[in-house]
Design a binder for these strands. Structure first.
Length: 402
RNA sequence: UCCGGGGUAGCUCAACGGCAGAGCAUUCGACUGUUAAUCGAAGGGUUGUGGGUUCGAAUCCCACCCCCGGAG
């Protein structure tokens, strides 16, 4: 494991069973873990300004190589001082490599899978071609052809200037057979080597690189992959690929995969971020989690709330909120809950007012931050299991340790 | 009072002799490294009323009731 202190340093401050609380030090400041990472796919946490995201307490957000490559392009962002300068974000940035788009564009029609899209849209399948060299895509904007290889991905991420770059991988779908997953995982390992080779000679000095463990739901493949990533010398390690068809299987895949990762490295679970899943990941010793769900649900009128029987969701677009004077969640410190009630926010959401999106995004990101902040405190106090049980039983994060 | 236009789903309107539809609204479902402020599904009708013609009428004919516009 390469450990370049001026690029990235990870300190584990407390342990509670396999869970741990730490700090990832980057060129743009620290990230206290466990941490949730909001997505800023196209250079913005949708609906919010960077200052607001920082104001909520977030120290790391995720931008996407594929989207920013398509538009506005790496040259324009580099000329603006990298993604930090372009979007006015002064804290740490991680960039996804574009690898997930190979999956989502090729397998957009795959349903019933934890890390898949339940939507139709498989017509994209014919438009993605994966070869040893890289992946050929269609631009989501104008359909024009573009090509991303490990070297292209790293070059773009270098131009974006993220603090943490992710290696270019293929996110294998659940419905790929073992044979395909094995071959794909091996190719991802070769891509890893090419990413690191490019980065060592031409990448920014201060930019860290995380490898990505593949192998699907197969224990031996996950084991081989974890070993290959760790041996390659990376600054951190992420779990990618399919995690199974449902939450139960995801739990099993993660329980089997997490112990395979090197202890000293920051561990990132890609794409997972529902309330219960985050707690499960933290319990397994995972440190950072990025996910579209809290922000996407907010845009769809759904607020996170301590209601496990409704999957921690309060759907404000549904009927029945008229006249309800309660805050979205009692005791929540967010602006929506401090100053407004369910009646008003529900009305705004159904009226398609942008203010509703903002209020619920602020709420959901506050909720996720509170969830991880108290998880961290619970780990430091040696009470994580108790905290997790209380949240899963329906306590709010800020009440769960009382 | 006369002339013209119009009354179809909660709303705005299609269908103009052959199984009454759409959009919006409503209700429900989905959303996990964001092509997603999105997508999917369902419920909802004595076609203003009464008669007539026809195998068959929202559609054609007659009468009446309402609404809109114009004329006086």
């Amino acid at each position: 494991m390469r450990s370049d202190a001026n690029r990235l340093r990870f300190e584990i401050g407390a342990r509670d069973g396999t869970a741990r609380a730490g700090v990832i030090h980057t060129a743009h400041g620290p990230i206290e873990t466990p941490a949730f990472i909001p997505l800023a796919t196209k250079g913005s946490v949708r609906g919010l300004e960077g200052r607001e995201v920082a104001g909520l307490g977030y120290q790391l957000i995720l931008g996407n190589t594929y989207h920013l490559f398509v538009s506005p392009g790496p040259e324009r962002i580099a000329a603006a001082g990298g993604l930090h300068g372009f979007m006015g974000w002064e804290r740490a940035l991680i960039t996804d490599s574009g690898g997930f788009q190979v999956f989502s564009l090729a397998h957009g029609g795959v349903a019933n899978e934890v890390k898949g899209s339940g939507r139709s849209g498989g017509e994209h399948g014919s438009k993605v071609e994966i070869t040893e060299e890289g992946a050929r895509f269609r631009s989501y904007r104008d359909g024009s052809e573009l090509f991303i290889s490990p070297e292209v991905s790293m070059r773009v991420q270098a131009a974006l200037g993220s603090d943490i770059a992710l290696v270019f991988d293929e996110c294998t779908p659940f419905h790929a057979d073992r044979e395909y997953t094995a071959r794909s995982t091996e190719r991802t390992h070769r891509w890893l080597d090419r990413c690191l080779e490019w980065h060592q000679s031409e990448g920014p000095e201060r930019q860290a690189v995380f490898g990505i463990v593949q192998g699907g739901v197969h224990e031996d493949l996950r084991r081989e992959s974890a070993a290959a990533i760790a041996a390659a010398g990376v600054d951190g390690i992420a779990i990618g690929g399919t995690l199974g068809r449902d939450k139960e299987e995801m739990g099993a895949v993660l329980a089997m995969t997490a112990p395979l990762l090197p202890e000293a490295a920051p561990k990132h679970l890609l794409g997972i971020g529902e309330v219960d899943d985050l707690l499960g990941g933290i319990a397994l010793g995972l440190d950072v989690f990025d996910c579209a769900v809290p922000t996407r649900l907010a845009r769809h009128g759904v607020a996170l709330a301590p209601v496990p029987e409704k999957r921690f969701r309060l759907d404000l677009r549904k009927g029945g909120w008229a006249g309800n004077r309660e805050p979205l969640v009692d005791g929540c410190p967010c602006p929506a809950c401090q100053h407004h009630d369910r009646d008003y926010v529900s009305y705004l959401s159904r009226a398609e007012e942008l203010t509703a999106v903002r209020l619920i995004v602020l709420h959901n990101l506050t909720y996720m931050r509170e969830l991880t902040r108290h998880a961290r405190a619970a780990i430091e106090a040696g009470e994580f299991d108790k905290y997790r049980a209380a949240v899963l039983a329906g306590r709010s994060p800020w009440d769960a340790r009382r």
